[in-house]
Design a protein around this nucleic acid. Sequence first.
DNA 1: CATATCATGTAACCGGTTACATGATTCC
DNA 2: GGAATCATGTAACCGGTTACATGATATG
Lengths: 180, 180
Amino acid sequence: MDIRTICLGVLTLGDATGYEIKKYFDNAFNHFFTAGYGSIYPALAQLTEAGLVTCMAREQERRPDKKVYSITAAGRRHLEEALTICPARHKVRSEFLVLMYFAHLLSRERLAKVIDARLLYLEELIDGLRACENDAQATPGQRFTAGFGIAVLQAAADYIRQNRHLVEQAEPVEAEVASV
Amino acid sequence: MDIRTICLGVLTLGDATGYEIKKYFDNAFNHFFTAGYGSIYPALAQLTEAGLVTCMAREQERRPDKKVYSITAAGRRHLEEALTICPARHKVRSEFLVLMYFAHLLSRERLAKVIDARLLYLEELIDGLRACENDAQATPGQRFTAGFGIAVLQAAADYIRQNRHLVEQAEPVEAEVASV
DNA sequence: CATATCATGTAACCGGTTACATGATTCC
DNA sequence: GGAATCATGTAACCGGTTACATGATATG
């Protein structure tokens, strides 16, 4: 599944500009999918070319024209097809956990800093998700994914707090200069 | 942080071949970092060229020569530096959660199948991690990351079981043909 | 006065994935 | 007999990231 498909999905929730779609990635999808303007604008251009969305330019003074995209009937069909055949993977790429795995190669300061920063960030994310979950307007899917994020991120934070001693109490390796 | 750095890290745990390093990615790193041969072998070649590892070829009959890699002193220094300056991100890319977010666009069958498959896979992963966690030989970092995986994946599985009704009980959208 | 928001886009780059190529041995 | 394991590698591809380009308005 690529970013095009997700843009199409967002447009089923209402017409939107690229700028507005980006906000979905920053807010709702924050904890499970990311995309920058460098992906979204080209995706929208490709969708337009393929006839899966239409674009209405609204002139604005002293600003780039606002381009409001709408999904077409062909776009809806395409989206349903895509959501039916795409694999349902869940991929994690965690430099944080790599650092924990090799914790014995890090200085105590670095280790503590990395862990503290991670905990701080997790709390931020969780706070953001609570707002989504409590939104009365949210669809079931939106509530489910927000709740999922809260549950999983909270479990991560709890685990880190309760087990950081495992890596922090171990002796850091002194780059083979320890003896002699 | 790229795959080169992780290969270097694995080699601090003992000499290894590319094939053996792949096993780390498949077992220990499974839940937080992936890499295929197409990434590992070129990484090892680049590390060798940079003098960060050395390579001893062991001849084998009727098989490609086994190449055993060892980290050098320069490699250790490079690794420590890399682990000190690299960002500690944790990135998720979940097609599964995208599907849940747009659950109302999926058929009931598809939705149930996706959820069941995810639960099954989560249990598999957790079982694999328990073996790592209980390994008496494991370093603190290895135990920490395995425990982390168990905690987080278990939380995910529990959440899905307890809340799948949120998305499964909602009416699927009938592609705007519902009325008329 | 500086930062955030609104608003769109392009081009180069990079790194990882996938597919291909080869082939014997051992276990079920 | 078929699948899994051992064992290494290359080349094309693709998709997402980063950096660049532009610039007014509103908020603190």
